[in-house]
Design a protein around this nucleic acid. Structure first.
Length: 818
DNA sequence: AACTGTGGCCGTGGCC
DNA sequence: GGCCACGGCCAC
């Protein structure tokens, strides 16, 4: 056997079972040759922890260990045995505990063994029995995803396999580039025929320049690969993909759509989706409503999933459809073809080249999006030690959990278990906990606003006050911390001697982020900058999600008291800043959670810096108030219902004249484009003192609506159908529009975007609502009274323009009357 | 459908 | 006409 060294990048991992032994398979791209290699590791076995009761004597513990070692259970599937038991010392909470690491032969025996041992009286509990085997491997072997790793391997002649002897990560090497890998995106166009979804076009685009569309219609498209039938389309796809030999397969919603169709059609025709160069098939899992298409060594990245769960908060477009996302992120637009266009073209066999073109374009966009998100995806994968396959499908909760588990292993800490269903119900029954403070603004236009906010408020609080499950009301600080580290609104305090696990790992994140930000400042190389920026961004989103994770009922680190303490300190600090600002003679205009808006007679940096220093000198730990910037104007509108100014809705003008709009209809995707644009324009004009122009602009819009000169597209209202149609109590417009569409034979799922128009026909607004595709006209009155007037009058009133100020008419009229 | 959290606004339907 | 629950989306 000759020993060898391989340096490469890990981007996939799974395991197989051979002869009752698990064999981990690590998919590695050799950095030099760019060839992929499957490395096998037979040295790793599944395990979980048994926690014996603390009161057990050494002898009792020894007997328990023996009992577990000798455990044997026979049933029809064979004999269940323990491979080995090792005594270890691990940290649980802040305590060192004796635990038994119970090693099993194969992964699926872990839950079985645990179930059998549950009846043993000497056992207090079980830990880490639900961490998937391949994830366990990545963590325990310190795999650094998307970073150079060094493997000592040996070649086994008999099987031709490479076996791993040792692994070393090169922690200082940068994360790799997109261009290291081969990427392939595909997209399907389908039609509904006799109750089945059938494939009519399939496009394939890859990073080596391949651009193909496959169809079985002969005169479809001059560049098309024309095959016999639908079955051949799928076979041809497999053939091309296999030949192109990509590392990653990219789709946009492939988990729920493309692979769903492919799986069904392939089954019908008796074909396997064997696209991988190493002979693996795609498997399609559905766990409840969640579906995934996966193939070892051919990593399927569903970009829609990543956009939905991770990027949604930063996306502004009305829907998360490919064309919108591509437009927003890439500045590219999808060709505009609707489903009815496709089926019409297919039925009449006209304009087929347009569909083919559109199909290819979708793959092109998907590939481009893949490149766009790669830095973020790879940084996150690396940070939380999860395969890119899992990272692109993960929620924030999953990411935080994965990161915590990884860090726990590093620190020899055993992680708490996931809550049982009953426990989760109990946690949820506690109800919502008190959150942040929001300052009620006064209505009007304010000048010269200095904006301050706390840098990462909640993470800073958790670190500074050592907020954790294990540090709460400790015995060691009973006398001191009770005074010095007490939660403002509650009766508990946190330990000041021993750092909790969560504060300590959060601190690592914050420090690392500061370090990366420093490097960013010194970096010129744009490629490198993008990577570093993605890394600091990954750290930021994981850090910010920790507080929510502690208050999340499904969390391993749930603690109600920790969550309420965090927000309690938050309220305390923002109130403190507000009080001190008042004392220093500033006028407090507004503030939300971690920010304060202070107005000054004029811009005065000396005063601003003095205030900042004054505050920061009195703040403990890593708490840090930052100066965000100066704004020449700030507009706060009257609340529609109730007294005072509306919170979470304002507009600011920065020193360069840019307008920043928060909360108003302009930024809400459930308002018509016309209403949003009109409000934006009015804001723009009023903030530059062009009152008359603003009035005229609105009159003009109203006039256009009255004379039906506004194109219907600008009047479409987008709303999400959040649940299945039957579970709605109230018949809101979008729900009624859907009901009417269902009557026409359309189908809807929860989570779908509904685009509707309020038409002229009907009594109530819901009566009038029709899906955009069925609407031929619109109700001008509705759009004037319910979309335009309310959104602009808030703004006019805020700057002090009374509605009744039109004098060009004999009668005194509302400026917007018509 | 959406499983990181709470605070908040506002339109609409539906009840009184 | 007034009030409130439902429902969706946004700020942080």
């Amino acid at each position: 056997m000759n020993s060898d060294e391989i340096s490469g990048i890990v981007f996939d991992c799974d395991y197989i079972v051979e002869g009752n032994k698990p064999l981990v398979r690590v998919f590695v791209k050799d950095a030099k040759t760019k060839q992929n290699i499957v490395l096998h590791d037979s040295s790793f076995c599944p395990y979980f922890y048994v926690v014996p009761y603390l009161y057990l004597t050494d002898e009792q513990a020894f007997l328990l260990k023996k009992k577990i070692e000798l455990f044997e259970h026979d049933d029809i599937s064979g004999t269940l045995k323990v491979k080995s038991v090792k005594e270890e010392e691990k940290t649980m909470g802040l305590q060192k505990r004796r635990v038994f690491r119970v090693e099993c032969f194969i992964p699926k025996e872990v839950p079985l063994l645990k179930a059998h041992l549950e009846k043993e009286e000497e056992i207090e509990g079980f830990r880490e029995y639900d961490i998937l085997f391949y994830k366990r491997y990545l963590i325990d072997r310190n795999i650094e995803l998307f970073r150079q790793m060094h493997f000592k391997v040996h070649h086994e002649k008999k099987t031709g396999r490479f076996f791993v002897d040792s692994i070393k990560a090169d922690k200082n090497s940068p994360l790799v580039d997109f261009s290291l890998f081969r990427w392939l995106a595909f997209d399907l166009e389908t039609i509904e025929e006799s109750g089945k979804t059938k494939i009519i076009f399939a496009s394939i685009v890859d990073s080596s320049g391949c651009k193909t569309v496959i169809t079985c219609y002969r005169n479809g498209y001059e560049h098309a690969v024309v095959v016999e039938d639908e079955k051949s389309i799928i076979e041809k796809m497999g053939e091309i993909i296999k030949k192109q030999n990509p590392d990653f397969i990219l789709t946009y919603n492939g988990d729920n759509f493309d692979f769903n169709v492919l799986e069904d059609r392939a089954k019908t025709f008796g074909i396997k989706l064997q696209w991988s160069s190493i002979g693996e098939n795609f498997t399609y899992f559905s766990k409840g409503a969640r579906k995934k298409a996966q193939c070892f060594g051919l990593v399927h990245i569903d970009i829609y999933k990543f956009v939905f769960s991770i990027m949604r908060g930063t996306i502004k477009s009305e829907t998360l459809k490919l064309n919108n996302i591509a437009k927003e992120l890439l500045g590219d637009e999808k060709k505009d073809v609707s489903y009815s266009d496709i089926s019409h073209a297919w039925r009449t066999k006209t304009n087929l080249s347009k569909i083919a073109d559109y199909c290819v374009h979708d793959s092109v966009l998907t590939l481009k999006l893949g490149e766009h998100i790669f830095a973020n995806l790879s940084s996150l994968s690396n940070l939380v030690c999860q395969l890119p396959f899992d990272t692109c499908r993960a929620s924030y909760g999953t990411l935080v959990e994965a990161f915590a588990i990884r860090k726990a292993h590093e620190k020899n800490i055993i992680v708490p278990n996931k809550p049982s269903n009953e426990e989760m119900v109990k946690r949820k029954q506690k109800g919502m906990f008190k959150g942040a403070f929001v300052y009620s603004p006064k209505v009007g236009l304010k000048k010269n606003i200095a904006l301050f906010d706390f840098r990462s408020l909640y993470p800073s609080i958790i670190i500074t006050h050592n907020i954790d499950i294990d540090t709460i009301n400790c015995k060691c600080c009973l006398k001191t911390a009770k005074k010095k580290n007490k939660v403002p609104d509650y009766d508990f305090y946190f330990c000041q001697k021993q750092k909790g696990f969560i504060p300590s790992i959060l601190e690592e994140i914050i420090f690392l982020r500061v370090k990366i930000k420093k490097i960013i400042k010194e970096t010129r190389d744009t490629k490198m900058l993008k990577k570093l920026d993605a890394q600091q961004y990954a750290l930021k989103i994981v850090a910010n999600a920790f507080y929510g994770y502690m208050g999340f009922a499904g969390s391993r680190f749930y603690d109600y008291r920790a969550a309420v303490s965090t927000t309690s300190f938050g309220r305390h600090y923002i109130h403190k800043v507000i009080e001190e600002a008042k004392e220093e003679g500033f006028r407090v205009v507004y503030g939300d959670t971690d920010s304060v808006f202070l107005s000054l007679p004029k811009k005065n940096m000396k005063k601003i810096n003095k205030f900042l220093d004054h505050i920061n000198n009195s703040l403990p730990g890593i708490m840090d108030l930052e100066y965000e910037g100066f704004f020449t104007k700030g507009l706060f509108a009257q609340k529609k219902h109730g007294e005072g100014g509306a919170k979470k809705r304002y507009a600011l003008v920065d020193e360069n004249g840019n307008i920043i709009i928060k909360g108003f209809e302009k930024v809400r995707r459930d308002w018509s484009v016309l209403a949003r644009q009109t409000q934006e324009k009015v804001l723009e004009l009023l903030l530059s003192d062009k009152t008359e122009e603003a009035k005229n602009y609105v009159r003009d819009v109203i006039d256009k609506l009255k004379t039906k000169k506004v194109p219907i597209e600008e009047l479409v209202i987008n709303t999400n159908l959040k649940k299945s149609i039957s579970s709605y109590e109230q018949m809101a417009p979008h729900v009624m529009a859907v009901k009417k569409a269902i009557a026409r034979g359309m189908k809807f799922k929860g989570g779908q975007n509904i685009a509707y128009v309020v038409t002229a026909k009907g009594k109530s607004i819901s009566d009038k609502a029709q899906l955009a595709e069925f609407a031929n006209d619109y109700d001008s009155q509705y759009y004037i009274n319910n979309q335009i007037i309310p959104v602009v009058s808030r703004i006019f009133e805020a700057v002090g323009v009374q509605e009744l100020s039109l004098t060009d008419n004999s009668k005194q009229k509302n400026i917007f009357e018509y």
